[in-house]
Amino acid sequence: MKKLLTVAILAFLTVTLLVAGGTKESKGDQSLEKVVSKGVFVMGLDDSFPPMGYRDENNEIVGFDIDLAKEVTRRMGVTLKVQPIDWNAKEQELNTGNIDCIWNGFTITAERRKVINFSDPYVDNAQVAVVRNKTSYKTLADLAGKSIGLQAGSSAADAVANNTAFASSVKEVIEVKDNLTALMDLEIGGVEAVVLDLFVAIDNITRSGKDFRILDEHLAPEEYGVGFRKGDQALRDEVQKQLNAMAQDGTLAKISTIWFGEDITVVGK
């Protein structure tokens, strides 16, 4: 019995190591051919991330990023498949080939750059702190000794972790599954502030009508990009080419105006 257990544990560990270590192998870059021959481009996203990508009343996934991807794939002559994923498992989804890219308000960070092949930034963003309107917080320093909430695995989590002065001043960081839960937690007083993307914050406050406001002091300026597998240079370049063309003929500006009322894109600027 003991022997059997040892064998089982060893087998488990071996599989773990293989899965973790044995994924990098490439025979030239066929990423673009693969997508074109399949005729399908799979974009992975968190389908609860308005206004970049979310479910509308008809349970259809819509959003700014979806419209961009639709236009890009139309120009590439392939069909777009929108694949909702668990945001926390996004790297695994990408590395195992379940999706061709992560395209969903995906923040470009130095750490992510090491393992992900990013497109050029297409939108500028910032991490901001949202507080209840009736509280007196004005700056990030006012949040010292308080609990703050954020979405686990999000770039807000990175932004807070990287801002050591702020991270060490707060009492604790409560991580939950999505921004909505974090904001509900803010409403009931479980946390004093929620850190999240500026666009998401604006969108949430306007659509929910909740009595929240955004602190003027921002945590971290950042850029959104489309993330590809490290080896998929050809596919990345093709998507970038289409984005550049869309910036030039004004399509990007048009889509941006639909979702944000103005052109917030930065491609070719």
Binding site: V19, A20, N88, E91, Q92, E111, V115, E175, V176, T181
Partner: peptide, 23 residues
């Protein structure tokens, strides 16, 4: 972890996201 209690699996998922690894 649904309501923000950082138990074992949340810690593991955070580490996985940080290191970009399934380990």
């Amino acid at each position: 972890q649904t309501i923000g209690v950082a138990e074992l699996f949340r810690v593991a998922q955070n580490a996985a996201a940080r290191q970009f690894s399934t380990t």
